[in-house]
Write a protein that binds this DNA or RNA. Structure first.
Lengths: 149, 149
DNA sequence: AGGCGATGGTGAGATGATCTAACCAATTAG
DNA sequence: CTAATTGGTTAGATCATCTCACCATCGCCT
């Protein structure tokens, strides 16, 4: 298998090429969110911020969407609740369930996060050229469609 | 900042687009390496396998190359040494230093890892088309050059 | 209507990968 | 020759994640 032209020596494999900039973005994101006044947010919390719906989401739903286990989400939500970013409200439609919802503070943090991401992507766009960045995004979306049909 | 056209709703940001397939590759890599008979290798170990030179590398060098601290490398190397993948030999040129080198077992595991990566990349190439995958790699290399000049 | 399997959420405890701080041994530079 | 630097290690902490066990509620079935 793998009868394809060998990569030039020293060219990192796709795993590294993908992971390293993802890591970079995480770090910058955290930096800028901290600068915006939310310095207690850690990278794991982004799973919640990214997936929680405005009307509130169940723990189970968050776990599915973020592809982690329920106890992991509970741990993150406990954390965020203690820090005032989210609140748990009873789910009106099901006595067992609770809805996790962003507080005002949480909404502000999410906005800061979104702004930071947009900023970082803009910097990358300025460096590569907007069309090339768009092409990169397109290819990554295609890859994602293949991996998670 | 960020006066660029908004992404369509639901389009994941670049962080996720990059991280998710990197994660995917890691998991597949580990699976296949395990199938090849090296089932005790964990993902963190890849840092050592990927960066160690055939002639042997110092702990310090590995830490720099893998972008982690020295104690982290010591921890990984202890692990790999106990499992028989690497050995420590004294550095002939410096009494303080030791060289970490792959054993026969380690070389075999590295080969299995390389084969697995090549296989996965070939699958991606078959799905996206080789030229498009090459384009993706090219753009990622460009991004890397921007981020780590 | 009552019981019981499925579902939503939690707690306890373990594990893995990382870090910082402190340290010893050997080297190199004044 | 001493002092600062460098290579490696140990100890201990932290964080993010998991599995297993559990309780509460729901909704179905007889």
């Amino acid at each position: 298998m793998a009868e394809r032209p060998l990569r030039p020596i020293g060219t990192p494999n796709l795993g590294f090429l993908l992971r390293d900039p993802a890591f970079f973005m995480n770090e910058r994101l955290l930096e800028r969110v901290a600068e915006a006044g939310f310095s207690d947010i850690r990278i794991a919390h982004t799973a919640v911020f990214h997936h929680v719906r405005d009307a509130g989401s169940r723990i189970t739903e968050l776990a599915e969407r973020a592809q982690v286990t329920k106890p992991t989400v509970v741990y993150l939500v406990n954390d965020l609740e203690a820090m005032g970013y989210v609140e748990r409200v009873p789910d009106p439609g099901d006595g067992r369930a609770k809805l996790v919802r962003l507080t005002e503070h949480g909404l502000a943090a999410r906005e800061a996060g979104r702004a930071a991401v947009a900023e970082i992507e803009a910097e990358w766009g300025a460096a590569l050229g907007e069309e090339r960045l768009a092409k990169l995004r397109e290819l990554l979306l295609e890859l994602r469609a293949f991996l998670w049909p």
